[in-house]
Design a binder for these strands. Sequence first.
DNA 1: TCCATCGTTTAGAATAAATTAAACGTTCTG
DNA 2: CAGAACGTTTAATTTATTCTAAACGATGGA
Lengths: 180, 180
Amino acid sequence: MESATLTTRSWLSERRRFVEAGGNTTHSFGLGRMIGRAYALLYLTPEPMALEDIALSLSVSKASASIVVRQLSSWHALRQVWIPGDRRDYYEAETNFSIILKEGIMPGLRKKLQSAGLQIERSMSAESGAVSLDCSRTSEDDRIFTREQRAELRRRLKTAQSLHRRADRVLTSKLLSRFL
Amino acid sequence: MESATLTTRSWLSERRRFVEAGGNTTHSFGLGRMIGRAYALLYLTPEPMALEDIALSLSVSKASASIVVRQLSSWHALRQVWIPGDRRDYYEAETNFSIILKEGIMPGLRKKLQSAGLQIERSMSAESGAVSLDCSRTSEDDRIFTREQRAELRRRLKTAQSLHRRADRVLTSKLLSRFL
DNA sequence: TCCATCGTTTAGAATAAATTAAACGTTCTG
DNA sequence: CAGAACGTTTAATTTATTCTAAACGATGGA
C-alpha cells in the first residue's frame, strides 16, 4: 500500500463546487436547488451517507435533508442502504441514469402532460358544442367569431391534441431511454 | 350567411379554463404561470392581440404582459404582427410547435446543460490532478478515499459526462424534432 | 412644439416557496 | 420502563420570486 489514500483538500473543494453546480442546474430547470445539491453530493460520495451527514455536508437542517431525500427517493435517484448494527438510514446515489429516467422522471412528466391533455379534450368538446347565435348578445364580454375563425380554433385544438399525443408517445417509448 | 357568427358565453368561459390549465401546466414544469396563460390565450385567439388586450384578458398589469410577451417572443412562441395605421404591437401565437421547440426551447435547454457539462469537465481534471498523500492530514475536514473509491469516482464522472454528451446529442439531433 | 399613447424599466409591495426549530411518534438500548 | 437517537411533521420565519404602480423615453399626430 505504498500508494496513497488521502485526497487533498483541493479535491474536496472541487466536490463542493460540483455540488453547487448541481444545485444551480436543477434550480435552472425549475426543480429547486436542494435536489441537485443533494444528488450531486451523493453522486460524488462513494460510501452511503446517513441523513445527518447529508444535512451537515450541505449545511441545512435535518428537516430539509429529510424532505429532499424523500423527493429523490421517489424518483429512484437514491437507494436506501441498511448498515447492520446501525439504526440510521443510509443513502447512496443511483448511478444508473436510465433507471432514474424511466422510473422516476418520465412517469412524473407523463402525469403532468396528462392533465394538460384532459383540458384539451374538454375544450374540443366545448367548442363543437358551442351554439352559434345571430343576435341576443347579452354582454360586452361576449365575442364574435366568424365561421372561419371557429374552423381555425378547431384546427388549433386538433394540432395541440396531436402534439400532446406525440409527446406522450415519445415519453412512453423506449426510444428516448435508449438514447439516454 | 344564415349560419352564425357568435359563440356562446360558454365557449368563452371554456377558453378561460384552457388558459388557466395552460398556466398550471407551465407552472408545474417550473416555468411560471404567466407564460402558459399568455400562450394559451393567444393560441385560442384567432386574431392578433395588442399588449393591452392581453393584459386585460389575463387580468394582469401591462408590465407583466410586456415581460411575458418578451419571454414568449424570445422562444419564438409568439409572432409580432403589424397592423397598418395602428401604432400598437400586435401578437399572435406561433402554432407550429416544432419551430418553438427547435428555435426556442432546445437552445435554452442546451445552454443550461452546457454549464453543467463544464462543471463535470472541471471536476474530472481536478480529480485526476488530486495528489494522494499518505500522512499530513491537516484538518478534520479532510477525508480519506481508498484507491478503489477514487476509481469509482472517476467512473462516475465519466458516466455523468457521457450522459451529458448523449443528452446534448439528443437535443441537437433532428430526431426529437421529427417526433414532435 | 406639445400632448397623447405606446412599451419598457424600476423600485417597492404582495405573494409564493424554501428553510428551520421545535414537537412528535418510533424504535432501540440499558 | 425510561431515556436516547432517529426521522418526520408542522407552524413560523426567512428568503426568493412575481407582480404592480409610477416614472420614463420614444413615437406619432394635432
